[in-house]
Design a protein around this nucleic acid. Structure first.
Lengths: 192, 192
DNA sequence: TATTCCTTTCAGAGATTATTGAAAGAAACA
DNA sequence: TGTTTCTTTCAATAATCTCTGAAAGGAATA
């Protein structure tokens, strides 16, 4: 453990580099809120994303001014999501963390998780709901008849849409980093 | 205003159709939570999505067992999002609501809003952050030099990625309902 | 204009989620 | 083994978000 502080407890004005990073971190955190990810977790992720060197829990605590517990929990979540990694530095007992900086990998990871958590459950439910109304179709020829038809149709459309959407995202992920550009080229032609 | 209740205050067992709808509504609501949309708002949306007929505030209150205020606020949000519409029925003073049932339109609407709220702000911030470190580049040739380089590069990659992603989503929306299927076909060939 | 019917608003209550800090746990070291 | 150093956990607290219900606001009707 080396004390990197230049001259002990002088606060030191933030450099433009630090200011810029701080701004990015703040905004990334805010956006996290929109995504059902908590702000702190997103901020930690951003902090690691803009850090050249590995960072330990105490660094995170100091830079974001949060408690040890909070830092620990959110770092763990980020590891669970697969967005950051634990590493160990020779001669240092502490754990350090680094961010997967390849934005494509990041995207892939996030898309996979969100799909599993947010798309698959609703698809399963739709299938189940369809089955429920299919089973009892022959019996009820009453006033509901049209209602049932419309309902089934809507579920069907939603189902197809979600399937197609999932497929395309899968393929994008499989195709890798270049696919967005390639696709965008293809689609531009298609549009004409 | 016609009283549709079959025989007044007999609760009536839920039909399979009603059960199925209820299940869909519930799940759609849960998923809303993941998307930074509140559960109730998502449930109202689902309720309208599976309803053949227009629905008024009292219907929403009754079916979801929520207060008038809650129903009113969330209905308004859904209108603001462009996911549902207010309509008026002849001879009835109440306002009714219907859902845009075309899943493609729904997707388009959601994507537009989310892009504006979640992608554009971060892109602006990245541009701003890049400018901040560009302006001061010539001066600082000290130890930060490499750090600045890496930082700029990462911001750049993120920027490019977000741009490309936005482009492709735009194109998908422009191409309309068939594009997912078409694209998925094209991409499947590409993969081989 | 007064009345009725319906909608919106918003302060307070309630529910949920995030954060802290201290205690327990785990791993390296001597 | 005991000690040190670091990490995790979790009950209590704080912050945030959501919901209610009653009051105020509007618009159609008489």
């Amino acid at each position: 453990m080396v004390d990197k502080t230049p001259s002990a407890d002088i606060p030191a004005l933030p450099t433009p580099l630090e200011q810029s990073k701080a701004q990015f971190i703040r905004r990334w955190g805010e956006m996290g809120g929109y995504w059902g990810i908590n702000r702190t977790m997103a901020e930690i992720h951003a902090l690691l994303f803009v850090s050249t060197e590995p960072i330990c829990t105490d660094d995170v605590m100091a830079k974001l001014m949060i408690s040890r517990g909070n830092a620990s929990m959110n770092l763990r979540s980020l590891v669970d999501w697969g967005l950051i990694e634990r590493i160990h530095l020779r001669g240092d007992r502490k754990e350090y963390f680094v961010c997967r900086t390849d934005v494509w990998e990041m995207f892939e990871t996030i898309v996979r998780q969100r799909r599993r958590r947010e798309v698959e459950p609703i698809v399963e439910t739709i299938e189940h709901c369809k089955a429920m109304v299919n089973d009892i179709k022959p019996k009820a020829a009453d006033a509901d008849a049209e209602d049932v038809q419309v309902y089934k149709q809507r579920l069907d459309e939603m189902h197809k849409f979600l399937d197609a959407f999932g497929t395309i995202v899968d393929l994008m992920v499989k195709l890798g980093p270049g696919s967005l550009q390639r696709l965008s080229g293809m689609m531009t032609k298609l549009v004409k």
